[in-house]
């Protein structure tokens, strides 16, 4: 057993009661040493529950999990020592200053005052908060608070870092800052990182391996490139004026491609040589008196992977915004 691995076997978490809820339903995965593992899923899919079990805040109903070689149930104290945690809700006393919080955290982990202070300085530099050292955490921006929380998670020099939705609620610029930080921690310090996210581009950007979780079950797992390649097809996306028209359009085009998908007013036609098929698509639609508002051609994205395996689109309003930002950036690059 390597000391930077995470191994999860048949993990189940159900909450008893009238409407028995199974938040995590037989999850298996392994995170290799020094890798970034992205746990992707919509709200309520079981991401936070999994992270709470792995960080010893909750007990599994059944199954087993080893973090850095320690069992999360029977060796909770050891797990806490080797794993740093930044939960989705940032746990910071807004009345305290960043330096005070970091020194206290260090001392609770057993460091002397001098060592804890030196470590705090180091970490504030690492997350670039040295300017704000004498300000109360309550005055920080969302991005700064995330970075302070990240620093707090690193106080005991963890081998493994758990980040629960590290960029939820952040503006695109702060999000990029956090991404850069996460990558740096991983590359420079070799810390294994387990992160949950509901943003596809976050998983795509950061993770070596992505597991998609829907309703407590992992429905797909692999590197982003592998997952996308497995789709093996391009798609022609047609937007119609109404969902009814889109449904008609789909019926018309269904025989052409490998398969079609209808998402409200949008029809996706999946086929291997999409560009060459565009004239035929337009012809067929015209014969039926249908005219799409727009037609686009796409390579498979993680979004498609998600739609494919989960049967639904991953909707996160902020993700939509930053996706726009990203496509804009791409254009600028061109």
């Amino acid at each position: 057993m390597k000391d930077r691995e995470i191994i999860v076997e048949d993990l189940v978490k159900s909450y008893p009661g009238k409407s028995k809820v199974t938040a995590v339903d037989g999850v298996n995965f392994k995170v290799d040493e020094g890798k970034i593992f992205g746990f992707l899923g919509p709200n309520g899919a079981g991401k936070s529950t999994t992270i709470k079990i792995l960080t010893t805040l909750a007990l599994p109903s059944s199954g087993r999990a080893l973090v850095g070689g320690f069992d999360v149930v029977s060796q909770a104290t050891d797990v806490r020592r080797v794993a740093g945690v930044a939960l989705q809700e940032i746990g910071i006393d807004p009345l305290m200053k960043s330096m005070e919080l970091l020194v206290l955290q260090g001392r609770l982990f057993g460091a002397s005052k001098a060592v804890a202070t030196a470590r705090a300085r180091e970490l504030l530099e690492l997350v670039q908060l040295t300017e704000a050292i004498d300000r109360r955490a309550g005055t920080y921006s969302g991005g700064m608070r995330r970075r302070l929380d990240l620093a707090l998670a690193l106080v005991q020099q963890p081998r493994i870092l758990f980040l629960d939705e590290p960029t939820t609620g952040l503006d695109p610029a702060s999000r990029r800052d956090v991404w850069r930080e996460v990558r740096r921690l991983n590359r420079e310090l070799g810390i294994t990182i387990f992160l949950t996210t509901q943003y596809l581009e976050e998983a795509d950007e950061l993770a070596d391996t992505v597991a998609i979780i829907v309703a407590g079950k992992i429905v797909a797992e692999g590197s982003p490139a592998k997952l996308k390649a497995a789709m093996g097809e391009e798609s022609i996306n047609l937007v119609f004026e109404t969902p009814e028209l889109a449904e008609k359009g789909r019926a018309t085009l269904e025989p052409m491609g490998n398969r079609t998908q209808l998402d409200r007013d949008t029809v996706r036609l999946y086929l291997s040589k999409a560009a060459g098929s565009i004239p035929t698509v337009i012809n067929r639609l015209q014969n039926e008196g249908l005219a799409p508002i727009s037609l686009t051609l796409t390579q498979p994205t993680l979004d498609d992977v998600f739609l494919q395996v989960a049967g639904q689109r991953l909707v996160a309003s902020e993700a939509v915004n930053s996706r726009k930002t990203r496509s804009k950036e791409r254009e600028e690059v061109k």
Binding site: E33, K35, F70, V82, L104, R159, N186, E188, G190
Partner: peptide, 28 residues
């Protein structure tokens, strides 16, 4: 990806004696 360029100096866990209760009470 060369992820293990540096290796963290990590003490063996659970060996270090935890601080005594009065120290924790004082700090908090």
């Amino acid at each position: 990806m060369d992820t293990n360029m540096y290796v963290l100096p990590i003490e063996k866990p659970a060996v270090k004696k935890p601080l005594s209760l009065p120290v924790h009470v004082f700090l908090l």
